[in-house]
Design a protein around this nucleic acid. Structure first.
Length: 272
DNA sequence: TAGGCCATCTGGTCCT
DNA sequence: AGGACCAGATGGCCTA
């Protein structure tokens, strides 16, 4: 399985934002300011959410009226104290709930083909990329009718049964035997993402040292084109072990060594 | 310094 | 009553 850099993934996602794959969150009556940025994307996205199973909206429930006997027997001080205790407990539960959600997101990151260290997909990137990745894999396997390719995507089956998608400046090839690759018109991409690429190069240098005798190593694993060197495509192939294996090794190791829910990706503190 | 991302707190709603 | 879920608000951190 290939290791895809965050910049490649960002490119893929940005070039497929208006695809049916980038199913965006939508709620019937929401007015969330924090999602405005995504709303602009959604407005360009005609993906039909009715195609997806959704939970039925909660309907208002008639409130029972009348005094509650126990509350009446408490003094105002006791009520305030009780409310405070409940709030603290609720905060604790909410914190825990979000930790579990983040833990699940981290496990999802683990199975996505990206660099496990130094780069970390954001939450929204993780969800969007997972969606697109599943779509691509499904196409590769031909196990399900996942609909048309993303608009603007040049999609075709390879001779070997894999799938190649041209999305913007990035071509994603997913082979049936695990030989994935990203081909990028790396000039603009590399320039925009130079900082991240430099970081990745450092990590690859370390990996090369550690796995220099790997049979999967096929020459230079990364080439970044200068503007004057820019070629139509810069091929990027990555060796095994896959990030999934790498991540799961970390995950299993931490799970065995500790009796807590350690995150398998770096960046945030673990919790118990 | 602005903007993005995140964790956390909070109050409301629904469910058991 | 209490827990789960949700979304808004807020402040911290990081990066361009």
């Amino acid at each position: 399985m290939a290791i895809w850099s965050k910049s490649d993934i960002s490119e893929i996602m940005s070039s497929s934002m208006d695809s049916p794959l980038s199913a965006s969150y939508s709620s019937p009556d929401r007015s969330m300011a924090s999602f405005n940025a995504d709303d602009s994307i959604d407005s360009e996205n005609d993906f039909d959410l009715s195609m997806c199973p959704q939970s039925t909206p909660r309907r208002p429930r008639p409130r029972s009226k009348g005094p509650r006997s126990r509350a009446q027997t408490r003094s105002p001080t006791q009520v305030v104290r009780l409310k405070r205790v409940r709030r603290v407990k609720a905060n604790d539960r909410e914190r825990n709930r979000m930790h579990h959600l983040n833990h699940a997101l981290d496990k999802l990151r683990c199975v996505l083909p990206t660099v496990p260290e130094d780069t970390k997909l954001t939450k929204i990137e993780t969800l969007r990329f997972a969606h697109n990745y599943i779509w691509a894999l499904s196409q590769t396997l031909g196990i399900t009718d996942v609909g048309a390719p993303p608009p603007g995507t040049d999609f075709e089956y390879n001779n070997n049964g894999g799938v190649t998608m041209n999305m913007g400046t990035v071509t994603v090839s997913i082979g049936p035997n695990g030989t994935n690759a990203i081909t990028s018109t790396a000039g603009s991409l590399a320039q925009v993402r130079r900082t991240q690429m430099d970081t990745l190069l450092d990590s690859w240098e370390r990996d090369s040292t550690l796995s220099s005798n790997s049979s999967y190593h096929e020459g230079p694993r990364y080439q970044m084109a200068s503007p004057e060197q820019q070629q139509p495509h810069q091929h990027v192939h990555y060796p095994e072990p896959s990030p999934y294996q790498h991540c799961m090794m970390q995950y299993n190791s931490s799970s065995n060594n500790n009796n807590n829910n350690s995150y398998c990706s770096s960046g945030y503190a673990s919790y118990s």
